[in-house]
């Protein structure tokens, strides 16, 4: 299982790019942290999600 924004998801084995596309995220509008480290967009395709990993996907909202 991979913890995505606090929710366990059965996506181990997929690449980050595969998951983000399948989950319908707008890649231009997000930033991703994988096990605490920010992942550069160019590395989404080569980042394989492993069992026990954690990812955070964030975007801008009104605030301030």
């Amino acid at each position: 299982m991979v913890r995505v924004n606090g929710e366990e998801k059965d996506i181990a084995g997929k690449t980050l790019a595969e998951y983000l596309t399948a989950a319908n995220y707008d890649m231009k509008r997000i930033a991703v942290e994988h096990n605490g480290d920010i992942v550069a967009v160019a590395r989404y395709g080569e980042t394989v999600l492993m069992d026990g990993d954690g990812i955070e996907i964030v975007s801008f909202v009104g605030g301030g």
Binding site: N24, Y25, I30, E56, I57, V58, F60, V61, G63, G64
Partner: peptide, 30 residues
């Protein structure tokens, strides 16, 4: 200013769509 929060896939609208080009964005750490 803007805030950073967990992204929601179902959210179609983004505040960025409302902000014209040329505006400097000031993200906060709220």
């Amino acid at each position: 200013t803007l805030a950073v929060r967990r992204a929601n896939t179902k959210e179609n609208e983004s505040i960025l769509d409302y902000i014209p080009k040329g505006i400097t964005l000031l993200p906060n750490t709220s």
